[in-house]
Design a binder for these strands. Structure first.
Lengths: 345, 345
DNA sequence: ATGGCGAATGGTAGCGCTACCAATGGCGGC
DNA sequence: GCCGCCATTGGTAGCGCTACCATTCGCCAT
């Protein structure tokens, strides 16, 4: 004594409707959709025709419940507006858009606690894979990732102890390379300016320290940082602070390109010659760096590619052939531009 | 003859485990979690204790399947890296982070077809609400939105014919205000420079046309556009094109701030005085506009607030009290800065 | 002829949760 | 004292799909 039709559902067609229309069993429809090669060509055609005619779209919730596995990639980033993470996320979306997988995006706001909460929530969905930014998870988060029961990719950085897989590059090397470049170009009193000192920024600073130490140039008064969120205007302010503290400054390595741009604008405003009086290096190499006047030297990082590669590795792992190389270092490139051309311009 | 324990699930606790531990029925646990006021205080306490002890997290898929309603907000934007949409999305996430709702984000890449596809996919999940950017949906998309069976909020723009609700502002008025400002400040041969001419950019251009027409200054050769994706470097190139086409140009209204920044940098490079020789107005008022040298006049738009408001309206509608004002115009502000101070600097 | 094997298809029994109704018990009104 | 009502709580029956076993059939080896 079944009711006329689905009691609660909005009357949308179900797999049973398709099966009836195509004159097959429901399970065959299910197979035709998920593993077409396991169904004879003729039935497959009939089924797809019925799907089309009814406008059937599988219910992902029912699917997830029945198979104990949701076709969802959980993605955790610390910021949605920071261009760097936006690019990573774009890479992830672009790589996933033509497959069956959805993306579940979470914003941790650079908070370990928030990350734990989101991992808890994401875990409850039994995602197909997890992609998380950074390698400095709290012990609790790390445990959650290890017990997630799905491939995990840590992105943005590489490190010695992956939960599962990693795609990124060494921020320490990036910071060192940037600083060494300034030294090579003849700058001596080189400052570090950094906002929102997250672990990656800390490692860039560490790279700066290594290079300065090696050259015998390190002076703690050269370092200006703040935990405040990064922005162009903050770059300007920090640069003024740095100059006030150390008027003989002749170069700055900036935490990121926003800060570098703020420094450049302040130099314009204060009629400080770039690159003669001050050399500037940014980090990430946003599009605007090569357009700025003078154009700004920066460390180009491969954000979009990190997103793509993370998905590729996760998909491989889901498909059963876990890549042998579990930690992928995509490196970076020093893009030398006018802002550090002390002698050549 | 039931099997020892959940056959497929990874052994995570279910609502039945909690019910057993608390000595109540499963349905009571369900209620204690969703409508606590309907369960006596004592039982509620016992149940929450059991939940805590077992580390129970409800399975959103099972929930969605049983209630025919997923606790998901579907969000469609044309770009993930464009700061404007990133801000809207951030507002949405921030407003939703402490409730039960998840966000399902889709990137349409400015494609109507992609939008249709994503709406199809999103619809299959029976979301709690849909938030879509723009008001120019294809007929198919519009139909999908109308039949979604949930609150729908169109964001970024306002218009006469909402599918359901709207939050945004008038891009035409914004374009007109920006152009009128240039005219008032004494500029006459004012160009329009625009990249990726999506419907909103088109309307800003229309606003420019209205203002120029009214002042008797309109000349089609003043308009330079391209369908290419916007960027700072593109702004520089388009400005060079515009100047080549019309060397007597004395002002530009830019489609957006990236373009404006590109124009500013090219002016620096070509030693064109801003604002004396050329006045510049941007659109959106990103942080860097007020830091640039000279600082750049722009139309400040309230992106973050649009995201927040859209969620607030959707939540109200879900809660049963649909706001009486279905179209909310959040307006914009002209931020006058140095880049248009022809006589005053 | 018989058995066995693989390919194709189907039936059944859930996945974990909630809608719907039923049941229980306390209490005030008549 | 009986009825009805409200406040609580529970049982049952799915939601739409897929995992896990059949089952069927053709075909080849023995």
């Amino acid at each position: 004594m079944t009711k006329p039709r689905s009691r609660r559902g909005g009357g949308r067609p179900t797999i049973a409707d398709v099966a009836r229309k195509a004159g097959v069993g429901a399970i065959t429809v299910s197979r035709a959709l998920r593993e077409p090669e396991r169904v004879s060509e003729e039935l497959r055609r009939q089924i797809l025709a019925a799907v089309d005619e009814l406008g059937y779209v599988p219910d992902p919730n029912a699917r997830a419940l029945a198979s104990a596995r949701a076709e969802v990639f959980g993605v955790l980033v610390p910021s949605l507006t920071n261009n760097v993470f936006a690019e990573v996320v774009r890479g992830i979306y672009d790589s996933l858009s033509d497959g069956p997988f959805r993306v579940q995006l979470g914003n941790t706001h650079y908070s370990g606690l928030e990350e734990e909460r989101l991992l808890q929530v994401f875990g409850s969905q039994r995602p197909a894979a997890l992609i998380v930014a950074g390698i400095d998870q709290t012990p609790t988060s790390r445990k959650l990732l290890e017990n997630a029961g799905c491939p995990v990719v840590q992105v943005m950085e590489t490190g010695p102890d992956p939960v599962d897989m990693m795609v990124g590059f060494s921020h320490l090397d990036g910071g060192r390379t940037a600083t060494e470049h300034l030294i090579e170009m003849g700058y001596r009193r080189i400052g570090f300016i950094g906002a929102r000192m997250d672990p990656r920024s800390q490692r860039r600073l560490a790279g700066y320290r290594v290079a300065m130490e090696k050259a015998g140039l390190l002076d703690p008064r050269l370092i200006t940082t703040t935990p405040v969120l990064s922005s162009v205007s903050l770059g300007r302010e920090l640069f003024r602070d740095a100059l006030a503290k150390m008027p003989t400054l002749d170069g700055v390595f900036c935490n990121n390109d926003d800060i570098a741009l703020g420094v450049l604008f302040e130099c314009h405003r204060a009629s400080i010659d770039v690159p003669k009086t001050i050399g500037i290096v940014g980090f990430n190499d946003l599009d605007m760096m090569q357009v700025a006047f003078p154009s700004i030297t920066s460390i180009r990082t491969h954000r979009y590619e990190i997103g793509r590669r993370a998905v590729a590795m996760a998909l491989a792992a889901i498909g059963g052939n876990r890549p042998e190389q579990r930690v992928v270092d995509l490196g970076f490139e020093l893009k030398q531009r006018e802002s550090t051309g002390r002698w050549s311009i």
